[in-house]
């Protein structure tokens, strides 16, 4: 507090306590960075060499080799199909999961925890790790990819849908219960219509994400464009790799445009 009879000549932005707090946070951040820098297992000569290596690599990529383009485009279509089919299945499977994982619709405490467990385990394991597992189970190929994307998507869609169910306006639910409607009819008439916009938004968003994810499945053997990229890189065919990379870029940007358009149309 400043008393009025002594006009202060100094002004500081933060109180000493705030400054101490900021200093501690700052110091901790700095220490973390120093620790990481000094102990990371890196050959520094390679680091200083990196810009030249990168330039060299990109140099070998031009001009992109388009002789294999028809094959690449076909596999790209396959990649889109993987993403679409997996998203479609995941959307259906996640509906009951969202239902039991939402506090206000779940039948009992056991189902609530079961729902939450499914969501957490699905969400915390990355698509690629799921793909590793399913390639080991189903063998290399598209099935492993579809199942991997599906498993990861269930958690994502289920979580967002479950939250949407928890946030619905409860008053129509009360009104329909008052008419003597059964639980199922109340869900169909009072809960489903309220969750529909979120449902579409989440499905489209996840499809957009899955398009990206499906481009890398091939790197662990789970089908799609990644397979071609991997083989081009393994054979040092950098010009073809460049074509694949460019086509992935186009695919992802197109996917984003399509999903933005669908979002506007449907919602």
């Amino acid at each position: 507090m400043v008393s009025m009879d002594t006009t202060p000549e100094e002004w500081v932005r933060y109180t000493p306590r705030e400054r101490l707090q900021r200093f501690v946070i700052f110091l901790a951040t700095a220490l973390a960075i120093v620790w990481a820098l000094t102990s990371i297992n890196v050959i520094w000569a390679w680091v200083f060499d990196a810009p030249q290596q990168m330039g060299d690599l990109f140099g070998r990529m031009v001009p992109p080799d388009v002789s294999n383009l028809p094959k690449i485009l076909w596999v790209l279509v396959e990649t889109v199909n993987i993403a679409t089919i997996a998203t479609a299945i995941a959307v259906f499977v996640s509906l009951p999961v969202a239902y039991i994982a939402a506090q206000n619709t779940t039948p009992n405490a056991f189902t609530l925890w079961l729902g939450r467990f499914i969501l957490v385990s699905s969400r915390s394991v990355n698509t690629i790790i799921w793909a590793l597992l399913f390639v080991a189970i189903f063998g290399p190929g598209i099935v492993a990819g579809i199942v991997a994307i599906m498993f990861r998507s269930i958690g994502f869609i289920g979580k967002l849908l479950g939250e949407a169910i928890e946030e619905i306006d409860k008053r129509p639910v009360e009104a329909l219960e008052a008419t003597g409607a059964s639980r199922f009819k109340v869900i169909v008439y009072a809960i489903v219509p309220q969750v529909m916009p979120t449902f579409w938004a989440v499905a489209i968003l996840r499809w957009d994400i899955n398009l990206r994810e499906s481009t890398v499945l091939g790197l662990v053997g789970a089908g799609g464009i990644g397979l071609i990229l991997q083989s081009a890189i393994d054979t040092f065919n950098w010009q073809e790799a460049a074509t694949v990379l460019l086509s992935i870029l186009v695919l992802v940007v197109l996917g984003e445009i399509v999903s933005a358009w669908m979002r506007k149309r449907i919602i």
């Binding site: 306006d169 003597g180 059964s182 529909m196």
Partner: peptide, 22 residues
């Protein structure tokens, strides 16, 4: 039985409690 009885009791609410999107 309770649901069957509720059919016989109509209720009107302060906030109307309609399903907006239907």
């Amino acid at each position: 039985g309770l649901r069957a009885a509720r059919r016989r009791i109509g209720m009107i609410f302060q906030g109307f409690n309609l399903v907006d999107r239907l």
